[in-house]
C-alpha cells in the first residue's frame, strides 16, 4: 500500500484564487498532507489563498502554461526526492477521493504512470462539446502511441519515481497531457488507466480548452515531435 505521506499532490494553477483554497483543503482532508501549488504567474490571490490552505507554493514570475507548471512540479519532485506525485486540476473538477484508485492501480499494475480516465467511468456526465473535443484529441494522440488510451487529455494522473526521473516535458500549454503519454511510451514506461469522476461546473467549463486552443495544442505536439523527437 502506497503511503499517502509519500505522495506529493501537484496543482498547477493560474488565476484560481476563488477556488484554490477549497481544492487544497479537500486534498488535505482526504489524508494527503503534502500539496504543492504551482502558481503560474497569477495576478489574483492564488498564492495567498493556497498558502493559507496549507499548500507549499512555487510561483512562476510570468504565466507559462499548464505544461510548464506540470514540469515545474516534476522538477520540484526530482529535487526533493519525492517518491510519487499526483497531478490534479486547480478548478475543482477532480475528486481527491479518487487518488486512492490511482494509487492502488499503480501498485497492483506496477505502472509508472496512471491516468485518471473520465471516459472509463460508466456514470460519466460530460458536456457534449467536451466529449467531441476529447475524442478528437484521443484520435490525434493515439495516432502516435502503440496502444489506445481512453482519456489522453486528463489532467488527473500519478507518476512514480521512475516517471519523475524520466519525463521531461517541452510543451508549455495543454499539449503536455499528450506529450507525457507519447514520451512515456517511447521511454518504455508502463502506463495504466483507471476510471475517475469529474464535476463539471460553469467555472470549470470556462477554464478548459476551446477549438483554437485545441488546434494550437495539436500544432505544438507536432512541432515537439519534429523538434524534440526523443
Amino acid at each position: 500500500m502506497i503511503d499517502p505521506k509519500d505522495i506529493l499532490v501537484v496543482i498547477p494553477a493560474y488565476n484560481e484564487g476563488t477556488v484554490i483554497a477549497e481544492v487544497v483543503r479537500r486534498v488535505r482532508d482526504e489524508g494527503y498532507p503534502h500539496v504543492l501549488v504551482i502558481n503560474d504567474g497569477s495576478t489574483d490571490q492564488t498564492r495567498e489563498q493556497a498558502e493559507q490552505a496549507g499548500a507549499i507554493v512555487v510561483s512562476h514570475l510570468v504565466n507559462r502554461g499548464a505544461g510548464a507548471g506540470a514540469q515545474t512540479g516534476i522538477a520540484y519532485a526530482r529535487k526533493h526526492q519525492i517518491a510519487y506525485i499526483v497531478q490534479i486540476d486547480a478548478d475543482g473538477q477532480h475528486y481527491p477521493e479518487d487518488i486512492r484508485d490511482l494509487s492502488q492501480l499503480m501498485e497492483s499494475e506496477e505502472a509508472d504512470i496512471v491516468i485518471g480516465s473520465r471516459f472509463m467511468n460508466p456514470n460519466k456526465d460530460i458536456p457534449v462539446i467536451r466529449v467531441v473535443y476529447n475524442k478528437l484529441s484521443n484520435v490525434f494522440t493515439n495516432w502516435f502511441c502503440t496502444r489506445w488510451y481512453s482519456d489522453t487529455q486528463s489532467g488527473f494522473r500519478m507518476l512514480n519515481r521512475t516517471a519523475i526521473e524520466t519525463i521531461d516535458l517541452h510543451i508549455d500549454g495543454f499539449g503536455y497531457c499528450s506529450e507525457m503519454i507519447i514520451l512515456g511510451e517511447k521511454q518504455g514506461l508502463k502506463i495504466a488507466e483507471v476510471p475517475i469522476r469529474v464535476a463539471y461546473t460553469a467555472y470549470s467549463m470556462s477554464k478548459g480548452q476551446d477549438l483554437y486552443m485545441g488546434i494550437n495544442t495539436a500544432m505544438n505536439i507536432l512541432w515537439k515531435l519534429v523538434s524534440h523527437p526523443k
Binding site: I56, L61, V62, R64, G65, A75
Partner: peptide, 13 residues
C-alpha cells in the same frame, strides 16, 4: 523563457 521562469521559481522556493 520557460526554463528561466522555472529556475527562478525553484531558486526562490
Amino acid at each position: 523563457l520557460t526554463t528561466l521562469t522555472r529556475k527562478l521559481a525553484l531558486d526562490d522556493d
